[in-house]
């Protein structure tokens, strides 16, 4: 099937891109690699009249340990010596996304801003018509959780966000009103349609910034999927920690592909600070993370199973990253 018709814009500066966003309001989408947007357009999933390409915009490809441009391709992250050395969890996460050919196209911005996914949403028009459409496109109710009171339960499937969350990153945004920085912990909203808290009209993501201490954290990412390539995550877990001697001085966990946004489990981690890093901690932390997680039946693999894997992944990640968590 061909793409629906739309006006295509190719700005060369960030400001021009922001102007275009402001001008077309709700009737515009951004495209960079196109690996997520274009399949959705083919399925007529909320296509807009205007599409603004970021491929020719200057200044989106910055890459340092403290700033990663939205236009950086996933393949550049996974291959960058700097990233592999200073932010290995970012390289590791990038490498887990989709498949090598798509990582040649997909970008950091595209993955962070990835639209939510759902069995009832990512379908051909005829299929969706057969179920009277869903809340996220053309319909009146959520088909995952009926009577959801206008809440969409589509699942966020971006993965880099989990890595950036455990490194305490922020979204660098730009609009006609100027730039601003929002911590990723406050950036997302757990609702499949809105997806972002306090998203301002005409605003675009230019980069992810990371605090100076990011390279000091030991961090890793593990992805759950049936095939070890191509598949979106059915769960993604990132952990980061700092040890003071053999005690936990800093601890962060982020999950993705469970809810409508990536989530950082700070409340889960708090009680473990100051404790000795050992296998018992890893196991308890995993259980606690699992208990704090909720999953819905709208992406591959049984929700109960996906929750159970939160515990396993947290425990295994810690053990892999530091042998003391295995003892």
């Amino acid at each position: 099937m061909e793409l629906p018709a739309f006006h295509y814009h190719r700005p060369t500066t960030v400001d021009d891109a922001a102007d275009l966003l402001a001008r077309f309001g709700d009737d515009v989408d951004l495209v960079a690699g196109g690996t997520d947007l274009l399949p959705n357009y083919k399925n007529r999933l909320n296509p807009r009249g205007h599409v603004v390409s970021l491929s020719h915009v200057q200044g989106l490809k910055e890459l340092s340990a403290s700033r990663i441009g939205a236009g950086v391709r996933l393949v550049d992250l996974e291959r960058s010596d700097l990233v592999r050395r200073a932010l290995p969890v970012v390289a590791e996460t990038a490498q887990a996304i989709s498949s090598p050919p798509l990582r040649e196209h997909g970008t950091v911005g595209g993955n962070v801003m990835l639209d939510t996914r759902c069995y009832f949403f990512n379908q051909a028009p005829m299929w969706r018509e057969s179920r009277n459409f869903c809340l996220k496109a053309e319909g009146q109710t959520c088909l995952v959780v009926p009577n959801s009171d206008d809440h969409c339960y589509a699942t966020y499937s971006g993965e880099l966000a989990a890595a950036f969350l455990v490194l305490d990153g922020s979204a660098e945004l730009l609009s006609a009103q100027g730039p601003r920085s929002v911590p990723l912990t406050a950036f997302f909203e757990n609702e499949g349609i809105r997806r972002f808290a306090d998203r301002r009209p005409g605003e675009l993501l230019t980069a992810i910034s990371l605090p100076d201490d990011a390279p000091e954290w030991t961090a890793g990412y593990q992805k759950l999927r049936i095939r070890d390539s191509i598949d979106f995550p059915s769960l993604g877990v990132a952990v980061a920690f700092r040890l003071d001697g053999d005690r936990v001085a800093g601890l962060r966990i982020a999950t993705t592909a469970l809810a409508s946004c990536p989530e950082r489990l700070d409340a889960v981690c708090a009680p473990f600070l100051g404790r000795v890093a050992d296998a018992a901690l890893a196991a308890e932390l995993g259980e606690a993370a699992m208990k704090a997680s909720v999953a819905y039946r709208n992406v591959p693999l049984d929700p109960k199973y996906r929750r159970k894997m939160v515990a396993v992944f947290v425990r295994r990640l810690l053990a892999r990253l530091d042998g003391r968590f295995a003892l």
Partner: peptide, 27 residues
Amino acid sequence: LSEELDYLGGNLINANLLDYRIPTASQ
């Protein structure tokens, strides 16, 4: 290991080559 036509009522949920999981070369 992974392939199935997954139905929800009369609807085939995975009528595409992303969700109908043919093993990849790496598997």
